[in-house]
Simulated scan of single mutants.
Amino acid sequence: MIASLSGTVSHVGLDHLVLDVGGVGMLVRTTPRVMGELRVGASATLATTLVVREDSLTLFGFADPGERDVFESVQTVSGVGPRIALAMLSVLTPDAIAAAVSTDDVATLTKVPGIGKKGAERLCLELRDKVPSTIGTGAGGAGEAASAPVVTTGWAGQVTDALVGLGYTTKQAESAVSAVADSLPADAPVGDALRTALRGLGS
């Protein structure tokens, strides 16, 4: 397994980044929280896990090993795949997931798109002894910020598409974007805008 990657960020997208590792561009799927901390040209170290399918090899990256461990643990539950696991970490922090599981907080878990009441109850039941109550931050952060941020004008459409991709309905996505539109400039980094919209949806 590829446990970690260190290199230079060459691209930051809505749901992925490209890390230049020794001249090889590694496409890594990650969360808005991680992408919001990275800038093109910055050095970064990510904890990673490789998900192997018959028709694909997908690399997922995280700010620290604890976040990666939660991503892997939640997938041991029936019906939870990489997409829902990544959505969980996009909406909730690892500590929030652990706290919700340990206290049977179904309401918090159902804030994640793709997780209904039964799915949340199953997560609590099956993960109670697997996910520690406090994850903490492991070694290897998301990396240092470069001096020049990645700026994308007209972020509203991209953020709406990203939210729909995470499993929210178009109506929910548009409402979330409208709710934060007045508080963010039109040239705000897309990653920052996406994180702000996700916080609104999770409140």
Rank of each mutant, 00 (worst) to 15 (best):
G81R: 11
A99W: 08
Q75A: 13
E72L: 11
V91E: 04
M88D: 03
V52S: 01
P65D: 10
A98N: 04
L86T: 11
V80A: 06
T76M: 14
L46R: 04
F60A: 06
T58E: 08
V70K: 13
E67R: 07
I97T: 02
T49N: 05
S73L: 15
R68L: 08
E54Y: 01
A87I: 13
S43N: 10
M35N: 00
G66A: 05
G66M: 00
P82L: 00
E72A: 06
L57N: 04
T48L: 00
D64M: 09
V51C: 09
L50M: 07
D95I: 03
A85E: 11
L89T: 11
G66E: 10
D95P: 14
P82S: 05
A47S: 13
T58A: 10
V40Q: 04
R39G: 05
A99K: 14
D55W: 11
T93I: 05
E67K: 05
A63H: 14
S73W: 14
R68T: 12
S43E: 09
P82E: 09
G41T: 12
P82A: 04
R83M: 14
G41N: 02
T48P: 01
S73P: 15
A44K: 04
A85R: 01
L46V: 01
V91I: 06
A99H: 12
E37A: 02
M35H: 03
F62V: 07
Q75D: 08
A85M: 11
F71N: 08
G61P: 06
A99L: 12
E54R: 03
L92M: 07
S43Y: 13
L50K: 09
A96L: 12
A99T: 07
R39F: 13
T45C: 07
T76L: 15
E72P: 12
A96Q: 15
T93Q: 00
L89V: 14
V91H: 05
L46N: 01
D55C: 01
D55K: 02
G81T: 13
A63M: 07
A85T: 09
I97G: 03
V74M: 10
E37K: 04
E67N: 07
A44M: 12
D95G: 03
R83T: 06
A63N: 03
F62Y: 02
A99Q: 15
V40M: 05
T49A: 08
L89P: 08
V52F: 08
D69G: 04
T76I: 15
T49Q: 00
R53Y: 12
S73Y: 14
L50Q: 10
V74S: 05
G36H: 04
E54L: 14
S43P: 06
T93L: 10
L59Y: 00
V51G: 07
P94E: 01
L86Y: 06
L57C: 03
L86P: 11
F62H: 05
L46F: 00
D69H: 08
T93W: 00
A99S: 09
V77T: 11
A85V: 13
D55F: 08
V34E: 01
I84T: 13
G61A: 01
V70Q: 05
